[in-house]
Design a protein around this nucleic acid. Structure first.
Lengths: 105, 105
DNA sequence: TTAATATTTCCGTAATAATAGAAATATAGA
DNA sequence: TCTATATTTCTATTATTACGGAAATATTAA
């Protein structure tokens, strides 16, 4: 992952509504959730939700598919893994002993 | 780690100069580097460098100590680990099999 | 003490991001 | 087709962030 891709991914997650969206989508699993459901859960109006979802989409952290008049969003685990791998690599600087072992690994 | 702490940490890293600063400090190790050295390496003027270092400090991603007229900054690995742990947890949603195994773990 | 160097703070400016109402677009169902 | 519902785009406004020169602060060395 290049630095500007990492910056874009970090920026996409560096906003409370968007990080909350991502967390909900991770919990929701592969099936995902419709944009409106996310908006209802977070109390965010449609236009604002669309803005945030677009930001997450551009960073490839979420995927979307259209089902009838619904647009279903789901978390892109692969891209998140790439981001975590990037951070891990640059946190440890090639010397794993410098960092405490990560949980959930 | 609470969501607003995670957002602050992500926001601190979501900027090209600051992510570059952090990477250099990780490479530099525990001894760290003076603010001016960082500014020279990245071609960033003192006031701007100070602004970015303050942002990283507020997010606790870097530590600083004063040595004479130099202020030496160093990476705070512990806080970075907390951020990575937070992201890993919310990436996998308690189900580790959903995520590809991380490198360097 | 005086001059040189290092860093931060102050301040104004420019750029970017967040917000959300209203209109536009698209689909579903009556 | 007509109406209701879902989402996005358009648009304007407000808020936040980035930038960097100049001044202020602090330390060192002569």
């Amino acid at each position: 992952m290049k630095i500007n891709v990492a910056v874009a991914a970090l920026a996409a997650l560096a906003q409370e509504s968007r990080l909350a969206i991502f967390r909900i989508l991770v919990q929701a699993g592969k099936e995902g959730l419709a944009a409106g459901v996310l908006g209802d859960q977070l109390g965010v109006p449609p236009a604002t939700m669309s803005f945030h979802l677009k930001t997450l989409s551009h960073a490839k952290l979420v995927k979307s598919r259209t089902e009838g008049r619904y647009v279903i969003y789901s978390a892109n685990y692969t891209e998140m893994d790439k981001l975590i791998a990037y951070l891990t690599e640059h946190c440890c600087a090639g010397d794993t002993t410098q960092c405490a072992p990560l949980k959930n690994c």
